[in-house]
Amino acid sequence: METEPIQCITILAGRDRNGVAEPFGRIDINPGDTISIVGPTGSGKTAFINDIEVFACGDTITGRTILVNNRMPPESFVRDPSKKPIAMITQNTKCLSDLTVREFLAMHVRARGITKADICTKTLALANEFTGEKMHLDMRMTGLSGGQTRSLMVADAVLISNAPVILLDEVENAGIFKDRVISCLKSHGKAVIFVTHDPLVSLLSDRRIVMRNGSVERVLTPDGNEREALTVISRMDALMGRLREKIRAGELLTGPVGSA
C-alpha cells in the first residue's frame, strides 16, 4: 500500500455543528483535480482541509473519514511528514530558520535523500514563475515576502516533496500568479484544494465545495457554464495585476484605468 500511487482520495460525510449528517455520500478527489472550498468565515472551510491533512477517521470534530484508494491510509501517511502524500500551505507556513534559499532547499533535498543535482535550481525557477518578485538562491528565507515564500513552498511541494495532493489555505492574498500556480499543478497531475474567497481561484477550479455551519452544503460543478464570467474575471484580474505593478513602481494612475 505504501508504494501504491494515489489514484483517489475520498471524503466520507460527517456532521454539521448541530450533529446533522452532511448531505453528501462521498467526495472523490483524483490526480489533476482542482477544487475550491468557499463559504463565510467560520463555516468550516479550514476544518475541511484539516480533516484531509490528518486523514481523519471519524476522530475529528466533523466526524468525517478520509480514504486513500478506497482504504484506510497506512499510519506512516499520517505520522511521518516525509511519507505524507499531502502538503498543506497556509498563510502561516514559514521557514523559521535563518537560512538562504539555497540552504533551505538543500536541507529538504537532503532530508528526502534526493540525488538529482539540479533540483534546487529547478525548484527556484518554478517558484519564480509564480511570483513577480524574482528570488535567487542567495536570498535569506526570513527576508522573503509573503508571495515569494508561498511561491517557494508550492514549488517545494511539487518538486521536492512531490506530494500528489496540495492544500492551499487562502493563498490569494499573498501576491502570487494564481492562474500559473493552478495550471502548473494541473500539468504535474497534482490534486489541489484551495480554501478561498477569490473569484478567479473559485472559477478556475473544476469543482466548488460550499460550506455552511461546519458542513458541506453543496458541491457545484460549473462544467463550463461559468465560462463567460471566467473570461471577464480573468481580464479584471490581469488589469488589477498591472495596476498593482504600476503602483509598486511608483507611478500615478492618471490615464484611463481600463486600458492600464
Partner: peptide, 15 residues
C-alpha cells in the same frame, strides 16, 4: 505548532 513551519523544517525536526 506544526501548522506554522515549512515542510522541510518539519522533516528535519523529526530527524
Amino acid at each position: 505548532k506544526t501548522d506554522l513551519v515549512s515542510q522541510a523544517e518539519k522533516e528535519v525536526f523529526r530527524e
